[in-house]
């Protein structure tokens, strides 16, 4: 549940979600659920030449299982805290 908790904290921030089919979508993180399904608002496709028809969609729901990466805003990353939390998670707590 670590990443669920973590992504919840990034709600309202700009993130880029890269899918396993190479599509990368940038938008404001609206919400996330326990399956890491992601809802974005005010989205745009990063590589617009490759995906011109997806130029812009207002709301977008992305299935958690098709997400490859989520690029985070640097200021949203507390390295120390994540370090501690991941260590604890790895311990099975």
């Amino acid at each position: 549940m670590l990443f669920f908790s973590y992504f919840k904290d990034l709600v309202g921030r700009e993130v880029t979600v890269e899918l396993k089919n190479d599509l990368a979508i940038r938008g404001t993180l609206h919400s996330v659920d326990q399956y890491l399904n992601i809802k974005l608002e005010n989205t745009r496709v990063v590589d617009q030449d490759k995906y011109p028809h997806m130029l812009s969609v207002r709301n977008c729901f992305i299935r958690g299982s098709v997400v490859r990466y989520v690029q985070l805003p640097p200021e949203g990353v507390d390295v120390e805290l994540l370090h501690d939390a991941t260590r604890r998670e790895a311990r099975g707590g």
Binding site: M1, S5, F7, K8, V11, R13, D33, L81, L82
Partner: peptide, 20 residues
């Protein structure tokens, strides 16, 4: 449960994230 922003200014580990 979808997490909707109640207070977007809180930082990680503060009151917005009890689990962590």
């Amino acid at each position: 449960e979808w997490a909707i922003p109640e207070n977007s200014s809180h930082s990680i580990g503060s009151n917005g994230n009890h689990d962590l």
